[in-house]
Design a protein around this nucleic acid. Structure first.
Lengths: 202, 202, 202, 202
DNA sequence: ATGTAAGCGAGACGGTACGTCGTGTCTTGTT
DNA sequence: AACAAGACACGACGTACCGTCTCGCTTACAT
């Protein structure tokens, strides 16, 4: 086996991407987000704050929300843990509660801004839905499936529908701000999904 | 005492607001919406298409989404009918089904754009939530209250929570486009709200 | 006769062009020319120095040399006097000498830059040749014609050719800087044109 | 003492300059000149068309006009022949006529672009004037000197002034395009220089 | 034969200016 | 005083080149 035959090991021609510029963009974006909010972000402003040329920005991201999305993804990388407590109910409460808690903080406003951008910018929408919406749905559905396998909920429950039932009200409250994403809300959601998952059995 | 001394009746000095200009703005906006979509709308473009000066536009609306909101409100004025069929279940199905049907059409995209604007523009958000979100919630809650009064659902059901349970998934599907707002979905929502409204009785 | 029927008297609709902005651009350009030379001029820089928006600049001028040309034209407006001394020789010496003197100063560098731009930018070339090259040629030819009418030079002299004979060496020295545009040079040019104008008579 | 101790003879260490890259740049520049004109040339474009790295370009030429100048010099290398017909008049007509003919073709536009660059770029100006302007002047002056030696024109004629008298109108017509560089023009120039060279004798 | 130094292609980098677009305000004359 | 028209200051957009840099890879002389 020859190392040079590994296609992944073949170095790209030309000067490699500068890690330093990448990090500068990430941290400048975080800083600007805190200082001026999502609305205050512009490609121009990020470039200036990061000490980076505009073309460098456009080389790697097509627009502001894509940069913000990358920042959020990096921030979320630690939270991938997905514990299995042995009961769907407590798994659900933990998962939904964690989601609500996260979205109650500063990342809530950013997420709602990204959701807004996804409505206005179809090219961004695809990436956003893939990276954030679908990824989170799948984690929820994995929990539900584990419960179904254990017989805690009906085997023929419609997982996609249950995911809508959970994420729908969360996003609705986040986007409209008419009520808090608190623990009571999270446990109500958990109960609702269990109720619905077993209704055909009732 | 004569009529002109009544402050409310006193005609404003100078030329009164032109109804013609108002109508021109409304219909130009509708035309542009169909032709180029919400993203293509600008104050400048609307003014030109309506044959109206920009200051006139700014005199009556602060920004694009406010104009669009006015267009949508005018279009929705006929559908205010709220029939009472005598049963919560059928009232709910009719109401939710109607909402879903409406949002499956062209107004769905516009509504999601307005929701997006509300995230990005706090000044617009207040008006949007008042005019659209709250107004619809109240109609749904009226239906539920009628049912509670008839004993069809628990009297201590949390109406706000139930409204979240209905509108959450609707908006979630509208905004993410991952599944249709069809009749099956509408009736599932109706069942879910009934199930939840009576759970404490179980 | 009705005043409103005069097309020139009909006011253009809309806000009229701001004289203030125009003057600001002119004087900012002059200042920048002195401070940084022609090469340092940019549309962006002029806009900033004049306290004027870039679109305003582009509304009235398509590029930098057009602005500079307008500055030069304004500066040249006083020198239109064209005295008739009664003799072609002295008229020529005065005219050519004045031209050389002018081009020996700071406007010489600017004129050579404009000539350069005319080579590189065909759209500008037309305006430049019309405004500067042709205008000056015509004044020279008028002097020559006056001389021909007085019998001081041959009536069938080729005026265009004589103009080339005068302006050619002037521009050539200006553009290459290999020799001064001094009085001796000017009077040599005057003699050369007289010599050539009468050669067929010899 | 051996040959290798001679500094000029010591081969530079490392890889020598690639003749292949040099030729590629030359021919890519010619191609681009024909295809898009002088204005379309950029260092970036030439590098790409030649299949050469940008640093290689910058290693050998400081800017675009320097490359073009090298192209023109190579093209002109065959025409160095300078025949002596025995008469100044015919030598002049041949030389001026040849110059005009050459400048009437595609190289005329390129030469005027180089002259333009020389106005805008002082660093390039020196090289341009040395390589093109002075070189041509000296050839013309050599012809004139030959004539003076033969007594065909006054010995105290100012050669530099006569050179201006010839090249001035040529460049002036080339740069302004108001009249053709034809044979009539060339012979008029020749006559003018003879007339001026002998005027003191008259 | 081997080390080492320069030339090479590729292309990313920090910049600058470009020309355009939309914003919200203003200044006209007209109605 | 409200209107249509449109000029204005502002500022972000996305693009094009600039000239410099950092890579990995030749190439060819000097040991």
């Amino acid at each position: 086996m020859n190392a040079s035959s590994d296609p992944a090991a073949r170095a790209a021609p030309g000067r490699p991407r500068s890690r330093q510029a990448f990090e500068a963009v990430m941290s400048a974006t975080e800083t600007l987000l805190r200082a001026e909010g999502y609305r205050g972000l512009t490609m121009e402003g990020i470039a200036k704050a990061a000490g980076v040329g505009k073309p460098t920005l456009y080389r790697w991201w097509p627009n502001v929300p894509s940069i913000v999305m990358e920042v959020m993804k990096r921030q979320a990388e630690e939270e991938i843990a997905d514990s299995d407590s042995g009961s769907v109910r407590s798994d659900l409460i933990r998962f939904i509660g964690g989601t609500c808690e996260k979205l109650s903080g500063p990342s809530g406003e950013i997420m709602s801004s990204l959701m807004a951008e996804a409505q206005l910018n179809p090219e961004f929408a695809a990436a956003f839905r893939e990276e954030f919406i679908s990824a989170r749905r799948e984690r929820l559905i994995a929990i539900l499936r584990r419960g179904a396998a254990r017989g805690e909920l009906s085997e023929d429950a419609d997982m996609e529908w249950l995911a809508d039932l959970v994420y729908g009200p969360i996003w609705y409250r986040l986007l409209n701000g008419h009520a808090a994403l608190d623990e009571r809300f999270a446990s109500s959601l958990a109960e609702a999904v269990l109720l619905n998952a077993n209704k055909s059995a009732g």
